[in-house]
Simulated assay, not measured.
Amino acid sequence: METVHGRAEGDGFTLVTDEDDDGELVARVSGTLDASHGPQLHQALLGALRQAPTRLVVDLSGVEYFGSAGVTALVWLSQHPEAAGKHVRVVATSRIVTGPLELTGLLQRLDVTGMPAESRPPTDPTGPAVPPSA
């Protein structure tokens, strides 16, 4: 059973929070996350972080454009003092989101799940090279 906790709307995005049966607070973000949405997105995510008992899931499955505001918001959220003692997980199901996360190195720094196969980083980037097939 899900309980809706809040809804934040910017000019181009919507964030809806609800608590799932596992006690996670899920912040579902949809729409466009570009530079003009940075401050509104920060405030909406901080509100969700404050509501989260111990785990916050930021579900970006509904995001249609993921620009610098989205990247900055995730870094800011993960480093915010109120995140201490809480686990933040990001759900990214498309290259729209995983592409910028990969380019900035955040795929390795954040707990990101739901990625398409082509977005998953190698398990050991320093592992042995695969010889070319004959």
Rank of each mutant, 00 (worst) to 15 (best):
His80Asp: 15
Gly6Gln: 12
Ala73Leu: 00
Glu118Val: 08
Leu25Trp: 11
His80Ser: 05
Gly67Ile: 07
Thr3Ser: 11
Val4His: 07
Asp11Val: 11
Pro132Phe: 00
Arg120Tyr: 00
Met1Val: 09
Thr3Gln: 12
Val130Phe: 02
Asp18Lys: 09
Thr104Met: 06
Arg89His: 01
Ser94Ile: 08
Asp22Thr: 14
Val112Leu: 07
Ala8Met: 01
Thr14Pro: 01
Ala44Gly: 06
Tyr65Met: 14
Glu118Leu: 06
Glu19Tyr: 00
Val88Asn: 01
Met115Phe: 10
Arg120Ile: 15
Thr93Ile: 09
Leu56Tyr: 10
Asp59Cys: 07
Ala35Tyr: 10
Val58Thr: 06
Gln108Trp: 12
Asp21Ser: 15
His87Val: 11
Ser119Tyr: 09
Glu19Arg: 11
Met115Ala: 08
Gly85Asp: 08
Arg109Pro: 02
Thr32Val: 15
Pro81Glu: 14
Gly85Ser: 10
Glu118Gln: 12
Lys86Asp: 04
Ser68Asn: 06
Phe13Ala: 11
Thr54Ala: 14
Ala27Gly: 05
Gly67Thr: 12
Gly47Cys: 01
Asp34Lys: 08
Arg109Trp: 02
Ala69Arg: 09
Leu25Pro: 00
Thr113Trp: 01
Arg109Gly: 00
Met1Ala: 14
Leu106Gly: 04
Arg89Cys: 04
Glu82Ala: 15
Leu77Phe: 05
Gly23Thr: 08
Gly12Cys: 10
Gly114Cys: 09
Arg120Pro: 01
Gly99Ala: 13
Val91Trp: 02
Ser61Trp: 05
Leu15Arg: 03
Leu101Pro: 04
Pro100Gly: 07
Pro81Lys: 13
Lys86Leu: 06
Glu2Asn: 11
Pro132Asp: 14
Glu102Phe: 03
Thr104Trp: 12
Val29Asp: 00
Arg50Gly: 05
Asp11Met: 06
Ala84Ser: 11
Leu41Cys: 00
Leu46Tyr: 10
Val57Ala: 07
Pro131Tyr: 08
Arg50Val: 13
Asp34Thr: 11
Val16Glu: 15
Ala129Val: 13
Asp18Phe: 15
Arg55Leu: 08
Pro100Ile: 09
Arg109Ile: 01
Leu60Arg: 06
Val4Asn: 05
Thr93Cys: 08
Leu77Cys: 04
Pro131Arg: 11
Thr3Pro: 00
Glu82His: 12
His5Lys: 03
His42Gly: 02
Val16Phe: 03
Ser61Glu: 11
Leu45His: 02
Val57Gly: 01
Gly127Asp: 05
Ala8Gln: 10
His87Gln: 15
Pro125Thr: 04
Asp11Gln: 13
Asp11Tyr: 02
Glu9Tyr: 00
Thr3Trp: 03
Ser30Leu: 03
Thr123Pro: 01
Arg109Leu: 15
Thr17Ala: 11
Val112Cys: 07
Gln51Arg: 14
Leu60Met: 09
Leu103Trp: 03
Thr123Ser: 13
Trp76Met: 02
Glu24Pro: 00
Gly114Lys: 05
Leu33Arg: 08
Leu60Tyr: 07
Ala27Cys: 10
His80Asn: 10
Arg109Gln: 15
Ala84Tyr: 04
Val75Asp: 01
Pro39Lys: 02
Gly127Cys: 04
His5Ile: 07
Ser68Glu: 10
Leu107Thr: 07
Gly127Ile: 03
Arg120Ala: 12
Gly31Gln: 06
Gly62Thr: 06
Pro116Gln: 13
Pro128Glu: 12
